[in-house]
Design a protein around this nucleic acid. Structure first.
Length: 677
RNA sequence: GCGCCCAUAGCUCAGUUGGAUAGAGCAUCGGCCUUCUAAGCCGAGGGGCAGAGGUUCGAAUCCUCUUGGGCGCGCCA
């Protein structure tokens, strides 16, 4: 009886996917020697699938198809050739059978030891199973959410947050270096309006108190009676505005500087606030305190979702408002000097003449900009009155991102901003040219293709099938926090985040999504997250049951593969291979920037487990009289649990080890929180 | 008008360098618990991928056009 080949090998056991890829790559090297192929194929470039059909082997590849042209032969002939060479290079006998099927597929059946090794590899790697080293590691700056700090996050921001956060984890697991960032738009018109809105509530304590009382006991989005007529037309109208005013009014440190009587009287504000000598509205103490309060709340809402950022980038800092150089103006000036920006022509609009030729336009339509980065029209970066636009600040921001040495900039953006992408890419191209003109040796690092923008489609919030009007200024909206409250199960604070995260991760980003509050309310029953979590809890329960029955799972034996020869049914092999596929999924999800692939994989893996388990109920369960078979099956359960757990934690979802049984009409009991890896 | 995204089963959605007989959940119907979780499993019915052309050994996937839906085209952010 021969030893499992893993015991012959001094190196840690390899994934069957890696091993087969290596063998196929070696076969193509042989094919070069025999004159069949002009060049070999790298292992990483070989597609390996787990075929759906039982008769198609354990793994299959379409390698022969992709090589047929360069071999000047038919796929089937190339397949035959590769099959022969594969048998030659497979000296250890990892592949039991090779079939050339159909028009040229190579269907491979694995020797048991080959897929047993996959289970060993999981036992070895444990919590780190799935992580890999990237062939070409990227330094990625991942920016997401970046919602204006003028209101609470809503459901759409939640989607972006979950996707961005999961994407960061996936990219890291795939071996890339990732820094996550939230860009705080704390300068400009919106901050002006926001501060103005708070100012109105601040000045009228009686009305404020009445409104807050009404909100506290009634409809949280209703607009109270008797709202002051003079409230800014396009001001922000949520209850939270009054609440911020209330908080500021109760803060002695703030109250010492009473707000001026007229919001638009810059001179009065300048006199009252020496640190803001121009009196500009978005730089007043009130505005600062207001957006800071909002950022605190945003961070708290994100925290409830389990989303944290490595860095919060302030737009103010780019403008030099907190000291330091004004990098926004600097970029605009340099673009102008380099011929990438020009003083605009006189424009006429409905309001009448603007000051002729004063605005500075970015030349985003230049023919030498690659088409994918070229804009449809030139955009203003500095207004006629000298104030820079949002775009100007973003230019400085993205210049800074690349200056920090990142090789890839990934901005997760709401789909309603897709029109913004070309001008941003165009700017990166222009900055590259600008730096070449300036003699910067690193100029090549600035180009439009450094930026990727995965778009997150809109979320339509519904209540019982009818759309809920959303808009910060209308004051009528359901916040992300509201949704979390509705979806969270009593006694389990984590359940809301789990349910919301999985809901978003179950859909690819580039598809619109209806989020119905009535459905969300019972999401705890419908949400597939519970299917996966239940699977994990069930696996854990089997392992603890084995210990209770006196046959505790032997992890060391699993790592050395001692008992694995006792595994051999089709279902066991399929489940083991499916577990071994996990690292493949991470690489694929990272490459395509698509976290939803992991969610679907986990659901499928749990389905395979449930099927295997339930079938085994009739023919002898996991724990049996034969200690070897028992240990072998426990190793399979343990490996599956490890993968499910790693996957859930990767997506920021808890992996409970126990879930209470569910009574008929009850909401789910609280799953116990999963211990960290 | 121009541009981007989407269209797959009754509903919600997967289907990823074009690959073998297009899948899952929900819903419907029929089965499965004295045993390590029935929040589970097994089976049935149900679509030929919005429509029409094209590319090729092969198309839900690529190209063109049409239809339908979403979004964008500010000296807003």
């Amino acid at each position: 009886m021969s030893l499992p080949w893993s015991e012959r090998s001094p190196t840690p056991p390899a994934s069957p996917f890696d091993r087969v890829r290596t063998l196929l790559a070696r076969a193509t090297e042989r094919a070069v020697e025999t004159g069949l192929l002009p060049a070999p194929v790298a292992a990483a470039d070989i597609a390996l699938d787990r075929p759906r059909e039982a008769g198609h082997g354990d793994l299959s590849t379409n390698l022969a198809f992709s090589l047929a042209k360069s071999a000047r032969s038919s796929p089937r002939a190339v397949g035959q050739h590769l099959a022969t060479l594969l048998a030659e290079v497979d000296v250890e006998g990892a592949i039991a059978k090779v079939e050339v099927a159909g028009p040229g597929f190579l269907n491979l059946s694995l020797a048991p030891a080959a897929w047993h090794d996959g289970l060993q590899a999981i036992a070895h790697a444990g919590a780190s199973f799935g992580r890999s080293r990237a062939a070409a590691p990227q330094r990625i700056l991942l920016e997401f959410v970046s919602a204006n700090p003028t209101g609470p996050l809503h459901v759409g921001h939640g989607r972006g947050a979950v996707l961005g956060d999961a994407l960061a984890a996936i990219l890291r697991a795939a071996g890339h270096e990732v820094s996550t960032e939230y860009y705080i738009n704390n300068v400009g018109n919106q901050i002006y309006k926001f501060g103005q809105s708070v100012w109105h509530w601040l000045r009228d304590p009686q009305r404020r108190a009445a409104a807050l009382a009404a909100w506290a006991q009634g409809d949280p989005v209703a607009f109270p009676q008797g709202f002051p007529q003079e409230f800014p037309e396009d001001g922000y109208r949520g209850a939270y505005i009054a609440q911020i005013a209330q908080d500021l009014a109760g803060d002695p440190a703030f109250a010492s500087s009473a707000p001026c009587a007229d919001w638009d009287d810059d001179a009065a504000w300048a006199a009252a606030e020496p640190e803001n000598p121009t009196g500009r509205a978005d730089n007043r103490r009130l505005s600062l305190r207001a957006w800071q309060a909002m950022v605190v709340r945003i961070a708290a809402d994100l925290g409830r979702l389990g989303v944290r950022f490595d860095h919060w980038q302030s737009e103010r800092a780019l403008h030099g408002l907190d000291g330091g150089p004004d990098r926004v103006r600097d970029c605009a000036e340099r673009l102008r000097h380099a011929g990438w920006a020009y003083q605009g022509e006189a424009v006429q609009d409905e309001d009448g003449d603007r000051e002729a030729g004063r605005a500075l336009f970015f030349r985003g339509t230049r023919e030498d900009i690659p088409k994918a980065c070229r804009d449809g029209k030139d955009r203003v970066i500095v207004r006629s009155d000298g104030r820079p636009t949002y775009f100007a600040a973003d230019i400085a921001y993205h210049d800074d991102k690349l200056a920090r040495g990142f090789t890839h900039l990934v901005n997760v953006l709401g789909a309603d901003h897709h029109g913004y992408v070309p001008r941003l890419k165009g700017v990166l191209h222009a900055l590259g040219d600008l730096r070449r003109q300036e003699g910067d040796p690193n100029a090549a690092a600035w180009s439009g293709d450094r930026l990727e923008v995965p778009l997150v489609q809109m979320v339509a919030l519904l209540r019982d099938g009818t759309p809920v009007p959303m808009g910060k200024r209308s004051g009528e909206f359901v916040t992300l926090a509201d949704i979390m409250d509705e979806v969270t199960t009593a006694g389990n604070p984590q359940s809301g985040a789990d349910a919301v995260r999985f809901t978003f991760l179950c859909r690819k980003a580039d598809a619109q999504l209806d989020f119905d509050l009535e459905v969300a309310r019972r999401a705890s029953l419908d949400n597939p997250v519970y299917y996966v979590q239940y699977g994990h809890a069930r696996m854990c329960s089997i392992l603890s049951r084995a210990a209770a029955l006196g046959q505790p799972f032997d992890r060391h034996a699993a790592q050395t593969g001692t008992h694995l020869a006792a595994l051999g049914t089709d279902a066991e092999r399929d489940l083991a291979l499916q577990c071994s596929e996990y690292p493949e999924l991470i690489v694929r999800a990272a490459r395509s920037r698509e976290p939803h692939q992991i969610a679907y994989y986990l659901r499928d893996l749990c389905a395979a487990f449930h099927g295997w388990y339930t079938h085994g109920k009739q023919t002898g369960r996991v724990i049996g009289d034969d200690p070897v078979r028992t240990q072998a099956r426990l190793a399979l359960v343990s490996a599956t649990a490890q993968v499910v757990r790693n996957g859930l934690l990767l997506l920021g979802i808890s992996a409970p080890e126990r879930m209470a049984a569910l009574d008929d009409d009850d909401a789910p009991e609280a799953p116990s929180a999963g211990a960290p890896a």
